[in-house]
């Protein structure tokens, strides 16, 4: 797994979803959706970010709450699109 890829996604999640005064931290295993950090409505920002950043199109059937529930899960999804 590319450390750069991991860092890119973690940095985005922190900036996009955590408030500046948040005490929460995010690593590659932190549950994102099931913990409530990212709700299913807000998940669209993450999907758009990944699509633009890596020039891919993630079909809706692959953009599940499970697939987006941690940075590790997202990386696993991205490998299907040959992003590493």
């Amino acid at each position: 797994m590319s450390e750069d890829l991991k860092k890119t996604i973690i940095d985005y999640v922190k900036k996009e979803y955590l408030e500046e005064d948040s005490e929460e931290d995010v690593d590659e295993n932190t549950p994102l959706i099931s913990s409530g950090i990212v709700d299913s409505f807000s998940m669209v920002s993450l999907k758009t970010f990944l699509e633009k950043k890596f020039d891919i199109k993630i079909p809706d059937e692959k953009a599940t709450t499970e697939a987006f529930d941690s940075v590790n899960n997202i990386i696993a999804l991205l490998t299907e699109f040959k992003v590493t």
Binding site: Y17, E19, F41, S42, V44, S45, T48
Partner: peptide, 9 residues
């Protein structure tokens, strides 16, 4: 709606 969806904190 078919428009692109964005959301803010």
């Amino acid at each position: 709606c078919k428009a692109q969806l964005y959301n803010y904190k």
